[in-house]
């Protein structure tokens, strides 16, 4: 049901609770890669999945709210350039998957390819471009440093979304299988 202005109640709740999940995973759900201080951030797979399910605006807001609060809670101050980049990533994940019908159990090869091309572009724009450029503009940090950091973070996020995001979306689509299509085996 669309309510009087803009977002449906379901979308608002998805943004709120999706951001809570994003934050919890930011704190506890990162997987060490084996290289010092670099972790796979599983919460970006969740961001991509929620943007796929609830649309680009939900993605944008989960990224912005989730990253801001996660930073506030763990570092005391949000690092705004990366917060904005997370928002852009969420927005783009959603935009590239507009009209996907995962709710109806559709997530085959075609959708997987589209999802992944979309997420690669989204991550590239956010971490290779937006985050470092904003770092330079806002914090006047040195270019070499921020572009390298962006490259590493973006690359890892592409990997996480490609593996975890795709698997989660495919598994979710399977839960939407119609009951009528099943028969018991002897």
């Amino acid at each position: 049901m669309r309510s009087s202005k803009g977002f449906s109640v379901r979308t608002i709740v998805a943004i709120g609770i999706g951001a809570a999940l994003f934050i919890v995973l930011a704190r506890f759900g990162s997987i060490p890669t084996g290289i010092a201080n670099t972790n796979l951030q599983t919460n970006y797979a969740i961001l991509a999945l929620f943007a796929l399910l609830y649309g680009p605006w939900a993605g944008l807001l989960i990224g912005l709210i989730g990253h801001t609060l996660a930073d506030l809670i763990s570092y005391g101050a949000p690092w705004f350039s990366w917060v904005i980049a997370s928002g852009i990533a969420g927005l783009l994940y959603g935009l590239f998957n507009r009209g996907a019908r995962i709710e109806e159990g559709q997530f085959g090869i075609k959708e997987i390819i589209r999802f992944n091309i979309g997420q690669i572009i989204a991550n590239a724009v956010s971490w290779f471009v937006a985050a470092p450029v904003l770092d330079i503009l806002i914090y006047a940090e040195p270019g070499d440093k921020v572009f390298t950091q962006g490259l590493v973070a973006g690359g890892l996020n592409i990997l996480v979304v490609a593996v975890l995001g795709t698997l989660l979306a495919a598994a979710y689509a399977k839960t939407r299988t119609k009951r009528g299509s099943l028969t018991r085996e002897a």
């Binding site: 399977k174 839960t175 939407r176 299988t177 009951r179 099943l182 018991r184 085996e185 002897a186």
Partner: peptide, 11 residues
């Protein structure tokens, strides 16, 4: 549950 072994858990 043997007859359902090929089913998705969600069903």
């Amino acid at each position: 549950l043997y007859p359902f072994r090929g089913w998705p858990v969600s069903a």
